[in-house]
Write a protein that binds this DNA or RNA. Structure first.
Length: 565
RNA sequence: UCGGGUAUUGUCUAAUGGUAGGACGUCAGAUUCUGGUUCUGAAGGUCGGGGUUCGACUCCCUGUACCCGAGCCA
């Protein structure tokens, strides 16, 4: 029992023992932070959350929960130009939907603007910060390069008094955007560029989504993040690998300020095959209308996955299974799909839906007769009960379930062949009807009355079983089929439109479903027998006319066989 | 000779210096009124080269490859 999900006696799942988990255990054993564990999830409200964020959310909230601690939701809103309320609402909804609760601990970096300003003044007084007049371009030139040291700014040695005065005038709006910045005085020759007198504040005469026009100087990420952690008494500040180089700065600020000092740990962000997770490119898909918004079911956003029909449980399970490490990696999308199907198989009710209908007439079935046949709702769950299916002389089956010249292992319907109709009878194809163009439009079959499912003489076996619906009773609905947005296995490596999949969306408007599906509610999930898992689209469905999104097809070994030829 | 990181089956991830294990995927078979599910089995791995050791994924030396870093973004 080495799998992370193995359950010991107490019934609680054992968390995976990844390196951060171990660090926390060691910290607790050493009595650090009085054994307290307090994490935070710190999104910038400048876009929608995606599956990569879900990994971070599960990590931060999961660790807190496991160790009896807390996890804050903190919006890192230090750049008013990019941030919007729309995004904070969406982010809160997504975190909640994923199943996590920050209770009353909803914080904003902007809550701390006042404190951050005071600390900046402290830094100036300590001779550790100065106001810079150089332009952005000049600062870059003075900073040096990756392999050469920088040189000190001519303004580096201004007096404390002058710096204090200038900084206050920056705050009061005395200068236009870009005219000045406040910089930390650390080491312009440091091999770590982040330590070469980093910018603490820039002037931005912009309206902030929460503080309005109260401020015209805004703290940079580095100046805000660690101190926010400190203010919130965070113990373990977990972020992604690209911030490793920032850690010395994180530590420097907290040390020179002499305030509570959380520790930063970095893990590798998630990459997924066939999936783009860069915020910039996701935004591009939305603004260029390649997809229909952030919650397009093809998007890897949490809202997209939700609308596609993913469950929070399956996403959490996925995050548990992928582990947490420092090595860059790309997880196979198939694992996400596995987690999804694993859950849906146990929970989704089975129904029959014919996506691409082909009419079948049972020539030996009485014209006016109908029958009600019992069908289990979920063979994996006896508690799910059963429903009655209506059967009649005219049916629909799936077009791809019939072939005029079938290959060797085709177990479905063909001229002269028999198949079972699920929960009903065995039928035999007697005649193929075609139109002028030679296309098959209808099948004439006979049914075997003795083969009725559940009956005393139903024992006869045939190779194939098909789903079907009664033609006069079926409801017609629109179903949307989705495929990967990209054909390339690592689409993030190239620019859009690079490997856009032209067939990522297929809309079917003439699908025939079991009559009861007319009343399916938005967000309700089903397994369309043999076809996959589907969800009633919460956005485009109308009462009485549900519209379905295919969440994922079933595993299909037949399709695999065919591909191999 | 810029700094910081990382290398374990196809993929993800484990292994106080002591049998390299699990999951996904793949392949084969069994079961099945879903070509689903379930069950059984198989193939497949320690970046390279040295060294220490009875014994090395693990320690030492030395290479190599890849990722991140020169925003007044986060």
């Amino acid at each position: 029992m080495t799998h992370p999900k193995s359950k010991p006696e107490n019934g609680e799942p054992t968390a995976p023992a990844h390196f951060i988990h171990k660090i926390i255990e060691e910290d607790r054993a050493a009595g650090k932070n009085d054994g307290r564990v307090h994490t935070r999830f710190p999104p910038e409200p400048n876009g929608y959350l995606h599956i990569g964020h879900a990994k971070s959310i599960c990590l931060n909230f999961g660790l807190a929960k496991e160790f009896g601690g807390q996890c804050n939701l903190r919006f890192d809103d230090t750049n008013p130009i990019k941030e919007e309320d729309e995004f904070v609402h969406a982010i809160k909804e997504d975190v909640q939907w994923l199943g996590f609760d920050w209770a009353d601990r909803e914080f904003y970096a902007s809550d701390y603007f006042g404190q951050l300003y005071e600390w900046a003044v402290d830094l100036i007084k300590k001779g550790k910060a100065y106001v810079e007049d150089l332009s952005a371009d000049e600062i870059r030139e003075y900073r040096g390069t990756l392999s050469e040291p920088g040189k000190n700014s001519p303004h580096r040695d201004r007096s404390v008094e002058e710096n204090l005065d200038l900084f206050e005038r920056m705050k009061k709006g005395g200068f236009p955007d870009g005219a000045k910045v406040l910089r930390a005085k650390i080491d312009i020759a440091a091999p770590n560029l982040n330590m070469r007198d980093p910018v603490l504040y820039r002037i931005l005469h912009a309206e902030h989504h929460r503080t309005g026009n109260d401020w015209c100087i805004y703290p940079m990420y580095d100046w805000a993040h660690g101190q926010s952690d400190s203010i919130e008494n965070i113990t373990h500040s977990i972020c992604t690998l690209e911030f490793e180089d920032h850690r010395p700065l994180y530590d420097w600020f907290l040390d020179t300020l002499g305030v509570a000092h959380p520790r930063q740990y970095e893990f590798a962000r998630l990459n997924l095959t066939y999936t783009i997770l860069s915020k910039r490119k996701l935004l591009q898909l939305v603004t260029e209308k390649t997809v229909n918004g952030w919650d397009d079911p093809r998007m890897p956003t949490v809202s997209g996955l939700r609308r596609r029909g993913f469950t929070p449980e399956s996403i959490r399970e996925f995050c548990d299974r992928i582990g947490v490490a420092k090595a860059n990696s790309t997880v196979d999308l198939a694992l996400l799909e596995f987690c999804l199907r694993e859950e849906l198989n146990k929970t989704a009710h089975r129904v029959m839906a014919v996506l691409k209908p082909l009419k079948v007439v049972l020539t030996n079935y009485p014209e006016e007769q109908v029958e009600y046949l019992e069908a289990e709702n979920n063979p994996e769950d006896p508690e799910a009960g059963s429903r009655m299916l209506i059967f009649s002389r005219e049916l629909y089956i799936e077009q791809e379930d019939f072939m005029e010249d079938p290959p060797k292992k085709f177990f479905r319907l063909a001229p002269g062949k028999e198949v079972r109709l699920k929960h009903a009878y065995i039928i035999k194809c007697e005649e193929v009807i075609k139109n002028d163009k030679g296309e098959v439009t209808e099948l004439h079959c006979t049914y075997d009355p003795k083969s009725k499912s559940g009956g005393a003489t139903a024992g006869r076996k045939v190779k194939g079983t098909l789903h079907w619906v009664s033609a006069p009773h079926a409801v017609t609905a629109e179903v949307r089929l989705y495929d990967h947005l990209f054909t390339e296995i690592e689409p993030d490596a190239i620019e859009i439109p690079g490997s856009l999949n032209p067939n990522s969306l297929e809309v079917l408007t003439d699908c025939k479903l079991e009559p009861d599906l007319k009343d399916a509610k938005p967000g309700e999930r089903f397994q369309f027998l043999r076809m996959g898992y589907f969800i009633v689209d919460p956005k485009d469905s109308q009462p009485g006319t549900p519209l379905f999104n295919r969440t994922t097809p079933l595993r299909d070994t037949w399709a695999k066989l065919q591909k191999k030829g």
